[in-house]
Nucleic acid binder design. Structure first.
Lengths: 114, 114
DNA sequence: TCGTTGTATTCATATATAGGAATATACCTG
DNA sequence: CAGGTATATTCCTATATATGAATACAACGA
């Protein structure tokens, strides 16, 4: 998994931008207005998101309409998949661990009490 | 979606730690050895991961065995789900946008040629 | 061409944090 | 209790970056 992508969405305002673009493509000014951010900051965040491959833009007169790219999200999804696969077994193992742990605690208390 | 969780895995070494713990629970020293990191750094990263709710530890003598928590990953999965839902429609819309754009370009070129 | 609108960039500053070194803390064994 | 092992914390420094302010750049309309 790519930390560039994760880093891009780990910043609160960028996450909000992404969630806004999830609803519909938007020009920079509209993003700034809706999220109550200043335009230069939005442009900078979009630059980072763009470099991370999360968004693209197409020009419409002076505007630049930004929209999401699917691929990075799919990559994140594939990464999560590797966790889902292991998850069930792991939880079982964990329960075993915890049971063992509890048994040990009981034994220790018994031992201490002697 | 929670940026604390994202921030936690956005750091390369922490991501490696998470991926290592995905294989099996491990004590700090083992993580340090396998990832060729210094022990204090690993402890610090684990602290952050712990505060973000991604890991927990149970004691085993002097060791602390760290293991992953499922919930934050499930939350991330649910967040991604909101994208998957929109994805298909969005791609169609995008195609429409792009078609419109291309049409506009053609018209502009025609106009410029006059 | 000029003014306007929309966006990007540059520069400076403040803040956050990753890493190194040293040390503290906790627990085990003899 | 002493020594050893495993982990956590503290202090310091360097680096990254989010923000604000000012400005540059680009494209439109009159």
């Amino acid at each position: 998994m790519n930390t560039t992508m994760l880093n891009a969405i780990a910043e609160p305002n960028r996450l909000r931008i992404v969630e806004l673009l999830r609803e519909s493509p938007s020009p920079v000014g509209e993003i700034a207005t809706k999220l109550k951010l200043r335009q230069p900051q939005v442009s900078k965040h979009l630059r980072l998101l763009s470099e991370a491959g999360l968004v693209r833009a197409y020009p419409n007169a002076q505007q630049r309409i930004y929209y999401l790219q699917a691929e990075p999200f799919k990559e994140l999804d594939r990464w999560l998949e590797t966790f889902r696969k292991v998850w069930k077994d792991r939880l079982d193992n964990l329960n075993d661990y915890m049971k063992e742990l509890k048994e040990e605690e009981k034994l220790n208390k018994k031992g201490a009490g002697q």
